[in-house]
């Protein structure tokens, strides 16, 4: 700390502090987390590789016959996407908790809701979105009928958003626990049931030649509900669990 020129800085009383705006904090956290994810590019690929490997196990464990696989494909891809999301959730708030930046987030002068939303959005960008983009390759591996590709991607696009949002509640509840990983799956998986049902069903309906807009609409409704409620619950959970 070298010699300073105090007059360089604005004095305390001189500057009235403006009332907080929400946008600045949201963008700051969003930008920071995207940057961190980008610096850890290697880790970003992990859920995708997990997905690929599990899908490879399916024909090995069940049958390579395309008729059998095609039957399993929609549900299988959805279940594995769900597991991949669960695996990546543990780190959502944990690294922030361990290095102390979660404390700083909690005492930043603005609603925690938007900070949580920013973090979840980044989580979705590095897991849900790649999963959605990867889905057609998985479809090919499991001989998904051609009518299923569009609906698969559409349902994953909406559904993985719900998965990240709901999962954030579990991540927030277990952030201070050393062995939070398996616990997150325990407490969050039952909450994923509706998303899984409608997600997989959208694909199956499309393959069978039925309309699937209904299922997608329901998924959209789930997403809207999760965007409103899940960050609130996660923010409340964070305030409680940091005192763990």
């Amino acid at each position: 700390m070298s010699a300073r020129e105090p007059q360089e800085r604005v004095s305390l009383q001189a500057q009235p502090l403006a009332t907080p705006g929400i946008g600045a904090g949201f963008w700051a956290t969003l930008r920071r987390d995207v940057l961190i994810a980008f610096r850890h590019r290697g880790e970003m690929a992990n859920p995708i590789m997990f997905l690929l490997m599990v899908i490879t196990m399916v024909p090995l464990g069940i049958s390579p016959e395309s008729a059998v696989l095609a039957n399993l494909a929609p549900g299988m891809i959805w279940v594995v996407a769900l597991l991949a999301t669960l695996l990546s959730l543990d780190g959502l708030f944990r690294s922030d908790f361990e290095d102390g930046s979660l404390e700083q987030l909690l005492m930043s002068p603005q609603p925690l809701y938007f900070q949580v939303l920013a973090k979840v959005l980044v989580h979705w960008l590095v897991t849900g979105l790649p999963l959605t983009v990867m889905a057609p390759i998985l479809g090919v591996m499991l001989s998904l009928p051609s009518a299923g590709y569009g609906p698969l991607m559409a349902s994953l696009l909406l559904g993985t958003g719900c998965l990240s949002l709901i999962g954030a509640i579990g991540a927030a509840l277990t952030v201070a626990l050393r062995k939070g990983g398996i616990l997150i799956s325990l407490i969050i998986m039952p909450l994923y049931v509706p998303v899984l049902i409608f997600g997989a069903s959208a694909v199956t309906s499309a393959i069978d030649g039925f309309p699937m807009s209904g299922q997608l609409a329901v998924l959209g409704a789930f997403l809207a509900l999760s965007v409103i409620l899940a960050p609130l619950a996660a923010a409340g959970a964070l305030r409680i669990s940091v005192n763990g």
Binding site: P20, A24, A28, T29, Q104, P109, Q110
Partner: peptide, 9 residues
């Protein structure tokens, strides 16, 4: 980031 979450003051 720190300045961002603290309103850029």
């Amino acid at each position: 980031w720190f300045c961002g979450v603290n309103q850029g003051h």
